[in-house]
Design a protein around this nucleic acid. Structure first.
Lengths: 343, 343
DNA sequence: CTGAAAGCGCTTACAG
DNA sequence: CTGAAAGCGCTTACAG
């Protein structure tokens, strides 16, 4: 099957190629009747303008890039990224933008991908995940003047626009809830320590525990995997004066923590309360279902995509604060047993 | 920052643009010394050829498309797709191909995306997931002559190349293992009934159970979600003569089934053995860890991508059989309790 | 081995 | 409102 070109449409419609272009792109320069006739013919012969030709004549590439920097085994199990991608996609396809995905091994590889995409003019802009403290990707993107929206912050985003949410506030809500239930020994299994939002959560955790007089509030750093989540939990539950509640920085580690508690013969929530970050179907899949800090991740992705498209269009875009995660209490949290409480 | 073009490289190297093109693409027509000098200059000024210009001059788009047709909530939680994507990606990036991803609502939308991609020349080929019986996408792709590799089969792939694995054999292994443990009442919670591999599994299940004389072997159709997995499990476990073992068509439903058993006060594996398809970290995340039928999904994706690139290059590609999933016994399977056994 | 030129399929000023 | 033409940045025959 031969692909139709703009010339085929022009011939059939008895107009110039320019007229077809104007009609397709909603530009002035053709009468409404002609426009409609041209669109009908394009539809009829199944014409879609070549994205290459379009990009080459100075229009956009109509594609947005997303580089994911996590090992395959984590990407697969953590619902976060696919949910984010779904939301990004929904926004992009509504505007006929494509999403170009690349899995990278580390930040250097990611930076190389950005440089290549920029040189190839393959994407009009990029979405940046997993913001770090003093992130090296930020100055590179600023330098290239490649439109970008950082998913994360606030702060450490340089002059780049961003979409962020207040993780500190959500964490405080979770701690206050546990304290209200009667917990005094609360621990946290944190995400990758280099990530900015991990740092913000850790600071918030330490601050609120100090304010509430919880002395042995400890954060065990981890890496979002079930393996590390189990290990961290085993360590916490084996320690003298073990916590009566643990907050996990993602759903995967929380589920792993639940399994460790069951394996050690501790009842959840009787002996141990569990709170998960990232409320996903995973949290409702286990027994008891997990109390979780959740928010609409697809919407988060959609907001990031929308702001990126605005930035590409040259509109001024700044930092956009998304909804704060809120706590959904489920079966994994309860007051500590009295023996624990008076100890 | 201005993007360097091939002319910039040519000027610096004191050669024609043609020479630069030959050097970059490993074509004959430039001396080895000149080629090296040109490559060094390209590297130095950060030149990557415009993918649009390249695609327009008849070379490939250097991109491959993948349309995913599942609702966001399932895409997020099922590790399969992200693992597949990781494998696809690994193969593609090694050859500097990009992956264009699109989430679609149904088959019609997916077909529309294929037509658009074809018209736009946006991708050189596509990977087709979730093969159905008499799949409508197959004739469309054949018609468009858009290179494609079907992930699934054998059969119902028309003239398209495919990558498939023998699900029937894997299912038989699982049933025989359960029977060897002493189970006689085995049920199955199946995936979406329209998918070809679901049908193949169902047929294999019915056949092997008949051969082994298991009379009330039943498959409850489901949709891969935890909700439906729970519902199906509740129904099975509430029935008179409830099964002592259940095989689930994915990991998510198996984990949900485990939670239902716990919620109903049934011990796993004492009262109920559970086998999951798609061995993912999810299966090792819960307590007890799930016995599972697993194989290397990233490798599966890599094979599909490799064959697609071969098809794009015009090489003859047929049906490629991937490794058969094998059973990894874990804590969720054991002989049924004697009370169950003699019943 | 190299240079000059056509052409891919669009978009967009520029004349009419 | 429309047509003819230049140009985007490559690749690839075609002469030299």
């Amino acid at each position: 099957m031969k692909r139709p070109t703009i010339a085929d449409v022009a011939r059939r419609a008895g107009v110039s190629k320019g007229a077809v272009s104007y009609a397709l792109n909603g530009q002035p320069g053709v009468s409404e009747a002609t426009r409609r006739r041209i669109l009908a013919i394009a539809e009829e012969i199944g014409f879609s303008p070549s994205s290459a030709a379009r990009a080459l004549s100075g229009a956009t590439a109509a594609a947005v890039g997303l580089a994911l920097c996590r090992p395959a085994r984590i990407l697969g199990i953590e619902p976060f990224f696919m949910e984010l991608i779904s939301g990004v996609e929904a926004e992009l396809s509504a505007r006929s933008y494509a999403l170009t995905l690349q899995v990278v091994a580390d930040q250097d590889a990611e930076i190389a991908v950005y440089r290549r995409w920029w040189g190839e003019r393959r994407v009009d802009g990029v979405l940046v995940c997993d913001l770090r403290v003093d992130d090296r990707r930020v100055p590179v993107l600023e330098d290239l003047r490649l439109p970008a929206v950082v998913i994360g912050g606030p702060g450490h985003t340089g002059t780049l626009p961003s979409v962020w949410c207040d993780d500190a506030a959500a964490l405080v809500e979770a701690v206050e809830y546990l304290v209200a239930l009667g917990h005094r020994r609360i621990a946290r299994v944190g995400g990758l320590p280099d990530l900015l939002h991990t740092r913000k959560r850790t600071e918030a955790f330490e601050r609120v525990c100090r304010e509430l007089g919880l002395v042995d509030a400890v954060t065990v750093p981890s890496d979002y995997t079930g393996e590390e989540g189990s290990r961290a939990t085993r360590r916490l539950l084996s320690s003298p004066g073990r916590p009566t509640a643990v907050i996990y920085d993602n759903d995967v580690m929380a589920v792993a923590g639940l399994a460790v508690a069951q394996e050690m013969g501790l009842a959840v929530p009787g002996d141990l309360s569990i709170v998960a970050w990232d409320d996903s179907p995973l949290c409702r899949l286990v027994h008891p279902p997990l109390t979780a800090l959740g928010r609409d991740i697809p919407a988060y992705g959609a907001h990031a995509a929308r702001n990126l498209l605005a930035a590409i269009a040259g509109e001024p875009v700044g930092a956009f604060q998304d909804e704060t995660a809120h706590l959904t209490p489920r079966g994994s949290t309860a007051p500590p047993r009295s023996g624990e409480r008076v100890r």
